[in-house]
Design a protein around this nucleic acid. Sequence first.
DNA 1: ATCCTGACCCAAG
DNA 2: GCTTGGGCCAGGA
Length: 118
Amino acid sequence: MRKPPPPELRRVPKSSRRDEAFRKTIRQIPKGKVATYAQVAAAAGYPLYHRQVAQLLRTAPTGSLPWQRVVGAGGAIKLKYEAALEQRTRLEMEGVRFRGKRIDMAEHQHRFKGWEFD
DNA sequence: ATCCTGACCCAAG
DNA sequence: GCTTGGGCCAGGA
């Protein structure tokens, strides 16, 4: 029969598939472009899971993802306080322009390959 | 199992 | 423009 797996490898969270799809999708966003939480979720094959995209970004190891390129609908920064400023600064450093408080999406929206709706 | 919370979204008003 | 309520989903207490 099957041996009990060692503690480290045992019971991978079953959300790991989804999270992996999210990570892969997020890494596709090039410098100077952005995508919304909902767009990332949908492009990864999980429409309606935008909140989980945020959850992932929250818990992701720093440096593992270009987190600054994921924004709220309409190009809004959803972080608060200083974190919001950091995201804005990082994006501006990549050449992203803002119109008031929101990102100019007409210019910086990333289109995922094979996505049916712009 | 229930309750609460969150880097969400959107239609209304 | 901005605020609100309801809808959505998973993780932690």
